[in-house]
Design a protein around this nucleic acid. Structure first.
Lengths: 191, 191
DNA sequence: CCGTCAAACGGAGTATCAGTCCGCTTTGTC
DNA sequence: GACAAAGCGGACTGATACTCCGTTTGACGG
């Protein structure tokens, strides 16, 4: 609970270097290109450092993903409408899908690499659980007659890196988001 | 196109042995336990044989999966209603989800291993494309106003090995199928 | 400014796999 | 039974995730 010692200066420097190296390798050569020795080499650190910091490959990608979705997470809990509390449920839901969709579209490669690395633990990941809880709550509020827990999983399952890559042509980068919003609307019905 | 030579007797024997070995390892120790040298050893063949026959790890799992879904595939194209042609679209769709759901529930581990191994190629897989085409056609027929192509991908995305494992408690083995049927029904609306 | 020590580091080492290669064996056929 | 083609085996390669431990570094009290 209490306070943790301040992170050592070299530790901070290295953590950043590793994340930036990961980003660079990811854009340069895709998910498979991000091997941990390459990351370490490019960041100018030893492999041990990478692992001490991030635990494993999945943790590294996870950290990067979280860095890129922190804003949405905050907006959803403390932000203003339509994302944050206060707005009508249906509107919040569509706004949330828009936000998550944009992140996913812009990070399809990272998302895919993360899914591969996570394997089964994807569902125990705090980030996943957060999105799931949020979605599930909104869905339950709007359609108490349906199985909100399942539907939340189902909607999140569509945020698949590989699928999004297929469904995101460069001339229409928001195609995926539009489609999933349409799907959610159909799911909620006209009411 | 013409005819291919009949498969040599030893080849048949080995192919079967490899598939059976894969099954056994899968149930014994899960997806990660199925390494190709283990499969080869248990089947009593060399690794080369496994690769010549199945191409790679994904191909091996794919073959097993296809073996276990061939029946549904046939029923969908040539079978009697409610799966086959002739029945009302909505009924065919629910019957199809029931069939695919049962296969998925019973083979969640295999499904998961296959997804891991396939990586991105999952979507180019003939089996995937077949299910997608079928679903897409049915959806387009029932709700021409929606994006059937996307919805078919979305529904198939929910057939995720890891998710199904989580959603399939032993005391209620059809939970997943029921939920996805409910979801499809909501999606199609009351009409 | 310096001594101390826990925290952090580096990178060689380990274990495990997917997938290849090529000399040898089996099978089907005439 | 001889021949060619199809198939076989398993050692080998290359890649990669992750570990281990001797060494270095930085924060901090004196």
């Amino acid at each position: 609970m209490a306070e943790q010692r301040t992170e050592r200066a070299d530790a901070v420097r290295n953590r950043r270097a590793v994340l930036r190296a990961t980003e660079q390798l990811l854009t340069e050569g895709g998910g498979d290109y991000v091997s941990l020795d390459r990351v370490a080499a490019l960041a100018g650190v030893g492999q041990g450092t990478v692992f001490r910091r991030f635990g494993n490959r999945a943790g590294l990608l996870q950290a990067l993903l979280e860095e890129r979705s922190r804003e949405l997470r905050d907006a959803v809990t403390h932000g203003a409408p339509p994302l944050g509390p206060g707005a009508p449920t249906r509107q919040r839901l569509l706004a949330f899908l828009d936000g998550l969709g944009e992140i996913a579209e812009r990070n399809a490669v990272l998302l895919f690499a993360h899914e591969q690395a996570c394997a089964e633990d994807k569902y125990s990941d705090p980030s996943y659980q957060f999105w799931h809880r949020h979605l599930s709550t909104l869905l339950a509020d709007e359609r108490p007659d349906l199985d909100a827990d399942f539907l939340a999983h189902a909607l999140l399952a569509v945020f698949d890196g590989g699928l999004i890559r297929r469904l995101t042509p460069s001339d229409d980068p928001r195609r995926f988001t539009r489609s999933i919003q349409q799907m959610a609307t159909a799911l909620l019905g006209r009411d």
